[in-house]
Simulated assay, not measured.
Amino acid sequence: MACIARIEAWACRSPIAEPVATSFGIMRNRPAVFVRVEDDDGAFGWGEVFANWPAAGAEHRVNLLADDVAPLVLGQAADDPAALFQKLEDQLYIRALQCGEFGPFRQVVAGIDQALWDMRARREAVAVHVMLGASPVIRVPAYASGIHIDAADRVIPEARDTGFRAFKVKVGFSPDEAARVRALMDGLNSGEQLALDANQGWDTEKAKTFLDAVADLPLMWMEEPIRADMPASDWHRLAGRVPLAGGENIAGFADFSARLGEGVLSFVQPDIAKWGGFSGCLAVGRAALSAGATYCPHFLGAGIGLRASAELLATVGGPGLLEVDVNPNPLRDAFGTVRDSIEDGHWRLGPGPGLGVSQLPEAVAKCITHRREVLA
Rank of each mutant, 00 (worst) to 15 (best):
R259Y: 07
T294K: 00
F102R: 10
M222Q: 12
L306A: 09
L92G: 01
V357F: 08
A82S: 13
L289W: 09
A232W: 02
A363I: 04
A58L: 02
F299Q: 04
E59G: 15
N63T: 15
W117R: 11
P319S: 15
G320I: 14
E223K: 03
I16N: 06
A55Q: 14
V374K: 14
W10L: 06
P330K: 13
V338D: 08
D68V: 03
K274H: 13
R371D: 05
V33T: 06
N329E: 09
L300I: 11
Q114C: 08
V364R: 12
R154I: 11
Q200P: 00
D216F: 07
E311C: 05
G317Q: 12
A11G: 01
D212L: 08
T294Y: 07
E124F: 09
R36Y: 12
L64H: 01
I138Q: 15
L211A: 03
H346R: 15
G345D: 13
C12Q: 10
I26A: 07
A83D: 05
P361F: 11
G301A: 13
A121H: 06
D67A: 10
L132M: 15
G172A: 11
P104F: 00
E224W: 12
L132H: 10
P71E: 14
S266R: 07
E177M: 04
L72H: 14
F299W: 15
G350R: 13
A302V: 08
R160A: 12
R154H: 06
S190P: 00
W235I: 04
G276C: 04
A232K: 03
L65N: 02
L211V: 05
K87Y: 10
P54A: 00
A144G: 03
I368W: 01
A152F: 05
